[in-house]
Write a protein that binds this DNA or RNA. Structure first.
Length: 270
DNA sequence: AAAATGAACAACCGCAGATCG
DNA sequence: TCGATCTGCGGTTGTTCATTT
């Protein structure tokens, strides 16, 4: 589209980051802060694209990242938020402190999709697969798919994996996989029913919320701690907005928006 | 033991929107 | 107001490694 490339690709490294590159990036950001990604590589002495530096920092090096397994509650929050927002991974990540959109996206594609399918729930529509078949048989189109593609390569085999993340050992990969174990265990009837849940979701609300949040200037959004920003923007967007803290399970994981009363343990909007 | 397969996830790509001059 | 630039996002690809054949 006639845009200049984000960097001079002839002199940039690609692929896995080395420990030295990571350290350079960390040192530079500690000294100068985030931002100016385009000029950062040169300033930090890195032969990397600025975009690549940003991604590495955001997804892997940021000190506030919570590495390791996703908990059951995080699973549930992700599923519920996905039913509201679709593949808006950044919005979902904003509500899961310490998790990145990339991490959640990967986790969704590799774990949760299969989990939902095994429960008979369509991962995109969050409706029962049976109802999907039934509606198709009536010649009706399914609900709009946010991504419009089918990336699932589902397999029934569960493999226990232990990997080192990145290009070297930092301990990140050592803890993954609890949800896989859960999947193997015999499950009670699913606590989360796609149909029931979807019926309770006001799509107009979710769409309005999305637009409002996305209208905020990007740089402002980034400066604000994720969960604070989320609650504040949600509350400020619309005075009559419905607080989702309770619905999506914030309180069960110890997070409250400004509309909620932690002391009482109840949400004012509930 | 080797090859094939598939899962996991880091990293890349291209686009859209925001910002700047 | 407009074009150039920067940044962030979502989708996709590449790589590694565990498991299966």
């Amino acid at each position: 589209m006639g845009r200049s490339p984000c960097c001079v690709k002839a002199h940039t490294n690609k692929g896995a980051w080395t420990r030295e590159e990571d350290q350079r990036l960390i040192d530079y950001i500690r000294a100068h802060g985030e931002g100016s990604w385009r000029s950062l590589p040169q300033a930090a002495g890195l032969l990397r694209c600025g975009k690549s530096c940003r991604l590495r920092w955001i997804n892997y090096l940021r000190p506030d990242l919570k590495r390791g397994n996703f908990t059951d509650k995080e699973d549930d929050v992700i599923i519920k938020l996905h039913s509201l927002f679709g593949n808006k991974w950044s919005l979902i990540a904003a509500r899961l402190p310490g998790r990145t959109d990339n991490e959640i996206k990967n986790y969704w594609n590799t774990h949760i999709k299969r989990k939902l399918i095994s429960r008979g729930i369509d991962p995109q529509t969050h409706r029962s697969l049976n109802s999907f078949v039934a509606r198709n048989s009536q010649n009706q189109l399914p609900d709009v798919d946010f991504s419009g593609r089918n990336t699932s390569s589902s397999s029934s085999s569960k493999k226990k994996k232990k990997r080192n993340a990145g290009s070297f050992d930092d301990g990140k990969g050592s803890g993954s996989g609890t949800t896989e174990e859960e999947e193997e265990a015999p499950k009670p009837p699913p606590p989360f029913d796609g149909d029931d849940h979807c019926e309770s979701v006001n799509l107009d609300l979710s769409i309005g919320l999305l637009n409002s949040v996305s209208k905020q200037p990007n740089r402002e959004k980034r400066r604000t701690p994720l969960y604070e920003e989320t609650a504040a923007s949600t509350a400020s967007v619309s005075p009559s907005a419905i607080c989702l803290c309770w619905q999506i399970g914030f309180q069960s994981i110890g997070h409250f928006c400004s509309n909620c009363q932690p002391a009482s343990g109840s949400c004012g909007f509930r």
